[in-house]
Design a binder for these strands. Structure first.
Lengths: 181, 181
DNA sequence: ACCTGAACACCGTTCAAGT
DNA sequence: ACCTGAACACCGTTCAAGT
């Protein structure tokens, strides 16, 4: 039976997890799927489009669990930020892939929206909610990119978890003081 | 006269600024320098090593001006963070290049050291100084990477400057509350 | 509708050989 | 000491032609 777009995406995900972003070439992906490289261009217009779709699928994994209720806004921000980091770490080169998309795909907007919603429900206006969501996003992406590229091989996970938590609490404390004072 | 390592690095810098990281190939660089691609391997053992050296040269630009005296620690942090962002923005794909080195080169360690020094002089112990420097670094890198990849083309600089400043002040307020309280 | 075959215009890297 | 020439093993992409 012929390949479908979902099969191509699934194969790309597996190849990423097994061999990393640098080994995720159109030729190696085609070989794994049992076709020639040119065939991929029937399903996606370019490799960049395929990587965008892959990034969006990974971001989608951050959105699966519904928010626990009874969380106050700092717990909710911690939950979202932790989920973002954990999901990126769960895929080889995840942070680097997510830094590479051209325009923010749908799930990226949805995830950002859950950050701004959290802050608005805590009393922030639109501008403050956007600033707070943005500073959390920049911090988590910058931290995880560095962590996955250079620290994951040398520091144990519990230690990195603890450091992330402490630095995240610095950002959240800053949001409280500057935006929700 | 023959090429020297510094000439290769200079050519790489110019090619980066003119055409961007994706166009900075060994073959195009060699052509600009009037040699064949293989000749570069006499000066650098690999393209990765050349990019590391280029990243370190750019980070070095953040360290040129001595610290203004009479600054308190928040002003000094703001100065360092702003200098980091400005320097990355001054080179095409600067943030992406600086996210790509394998091990932190000398100037990266020196820059991080000036952040920790600032926090220690404000009364932080070693652990707190490290956490504070790290959260600033992660935020600035994450922010500028996103900015240079997707916002620089669509938002005016003054607006991006203002947003960066506001978000940086969130991080600094968090450091004050969590680490220097 | 989906894919092959074959090509095009590239990459980074190596290394004997030249000067 | 520094570089050429030529090769090796790759890339992403296009597209007529096949089924």
């Amino acid at each position: 039976m012929p390949l479908r777009q979902a099969d191509v995406l699934q194969g790309a995900m597996e190849l990423l997890d097994e061999d990393g972003l640098d080994e995720l070439t159109t030729r190696r992906l085609a070989q794994r799927l049992g076709v020639r490289a040119g065939a991929l261009y029937w399903h996606y217009p370019s490799k960049a489009a395929l990587l965008d779709a892959l990034a969006d699928r990974i971001i989608g994994e951050m959105l699966t669990q519904p928010p626990a209720d009874g969380q106050d806004w700092p717990d909710r921000l911690r939950d979202l930020a932790t989920r973002a980091r954990t999901t990126m770490l769960a895929h080889r080169d995840g942070a680097r892939l997510l830094a590479s998309f051209t325009a923010p795909p749908p799930n990226a907007l949805a995830f950002f929206g859950s950050l701004t919603d959290t802050l608005r429900s805590a009393g922030a206006d639109d501008r403050a909610a956007h600033l707070g969501a943005d500073v959390v996003t920049s911090f988590v992406n910058g931290y995880t990119l560095e962590e996955q590229a250079r620290q994951a091989a040398v520091l144990p996970l519990e230690q990195r978890d603890a450091t992330f938590r402490l630095e995240l609490d610095i950002v959240i404390a800053g949001i409280r003081v500057q935006l929700l004072g």
